[in-house]
């Protein structure tokens, strides 16, 4: 009988105190974490559309197949629409990769910004390097090839990191479609 009081009571107290500590920590780190995310977003924006203003598009109402799109931002320079930033999550080799794509109103890629991910250093993590992302600039719809890219619409995959490379390529093609859809509205 004593067990029925002691065991739940001790676990309740331990859990309660743990919960309080976590609550405090969460409160203290909420702001810095939010700032980290904001900074990452600002850097991404600068990279894709330098010196522009951004408007977050509410009410995206995209179809189910675009469920992985987190946000779409309108990019404007001096009040004129120049393009969109499509932020989405694609599954890479080791989980989700946060991707920001800059697409002009003509469906041209201005850049690829790879955000938070857990890809393997030296392999999939190389997707963040400019050697890989730089390939996308100025292209429209692209396909992935292993080895050297010859044609205009080809992207050379990272050696031994095809899955990650494919995810980025699939993402950019999806971003172009999404920006088209949004523009029509």
């Amino acid at each position: 009988m004593r067990d029925f009081i002691k065991l739940p009571l001790v676990l309740f107290l331990v859990a309660l105190i743990a919960g309080m500590i976590l609550g405090v920590t969460n409160y203290l780190t909420k702001e810095p974490i939010r700032m980290q995310h904001e900074m990452a977003l600002r850097n991404a924006r600068e990279e894709l559309f330098p010196d522009s203003e951004f408007i977050t598009l509410e009410e995206l109402s995209l179809s189910e197949e675009n469920d992985n799109v987190i946000a779409v931002y309108e990019s404007q320079k001096d009040g004129i629409l120049v393009g969109y930033i499509v932020t989405m999550e694609k599954t890479g080799y080791a989980g989700a990769i946060l991707l920001n794509y800059g697409i002009t109103i003509d469906g041209m890629i201005t850049g690829v910004n790879v955000g938070t991910n857990s890809e393997t250093p030296g392999l999939g993590a190389k997707a963040s390097d400019v050697e890989f992302t730089g390939q996308f600039i100025g292209k429209k719809n692209v396909t992935l090839v292993k080895g050297t890219a010859i044609a205009d619409d080809e992207i050379s995959a990272i050696t031994a990191a095809t899955i990650t490379s494919q995810a980025v390529v699939d993402g950019v093609n999806q971003a172009i479609v999404v920006s088209d859809l949004v523009m029509e509205k």
Partner: peptide
């Protein structure tokens, strides 16, 4: 948060 985890405990 404290009560939530406490109740689970």
């Amino acid at each position: 948060s404290a009560i939530a985890i406490g109740i689970i405990g």
